[in-house]
Amino acid sequence: MNLGEGVQFVSFIVLAVMMIGAALGVVLFEKIVYSAFLLGAVFMSIAGLYVLQNADFVAAAQILIYVGAVNVLILFAIMLVNKKEDYVPVAGRWIRKAAAAFVSAGLFALLTTMLLRTDWKIDLSVPLPSLPIEVMGEHFFSDFLLPFELASVLLLMALIGAVVLARKETIMGEETAIVGETPAPVLELPERPREPVA
C-alpha cells in the first residue's frame, strides 16, 4: 500500500464513521437545531466520499446545493419558527410507530439485497475522461435531456408555488392624516384580501 492508497483508505474510514454518526445524530437528537446542523455534516461527508471517487465536480455541487442552500434554508426555517411547543401524546401513536418501523425495515431489506446482489467489480478498461464536466454536460444535453428538463420544470413549479404562497399585497396610499393631529397611526398596512385561485 503506497501513500495515496493509505490516505484514501483512512479518509474513507473517517468519512464513513462521520457520516453514520452524524446521520444517527440527526435522527436521535431531541433538539431540532442539532439535527439540522448534523444534517450539514452528513452532506459534507457525502461530498468527501464523492471526492474519494474522483468526482470532484459532483462533490462541489453537493456542497453548494445541499450544504449551502438546502441546509441553510432548513436552519433558516427552524430559527424563524422558534416556537416552544409541548407534545401532547396522541392516541393510537403505536400505529404510526409500527408503520414507520415497517417502512424502515422494508427499505433496509431492499437496500441490503441490492448491496448483496450487485456486482461491484469495476471495469477498469474504460479510461477516465480527462474532463468529466464536459462529458457530463454532453450527457445532460443528449441522452439525459428529458430528466434534466423535467427537473428544471419541477424547480420552476416550486419557485412559482413559493411566490404564490408568500405573496402578500398591502393597500398603499390611504394615509391622509397629518402627523400631530391624529393619534399615533397603526404601524400596519391593511392587507388586500386574496382572491381565491380558480
Binding site: F57, A60, L64, G68, V72, L75, M79, I133
Partner: peptide, 23 residues
C-alpha cells in the same frame, strides 16, 4: 479542474457557521 467553482461552493458553507454562532 473545477477551480473557481470550488470557491463558490466553499463560500456557501460560511452562512452555516454564521447561523450557528448567531443561534
Amino acid at each position: 479542474g473545477i477551480g473557481i467553482f470550488l470557491w463558490i461552493s466553499l463560500s456557501s458553507i460560511v452562512p452555516i457557521g454564521l447561523l450557528m454562532s448567531g443561534y
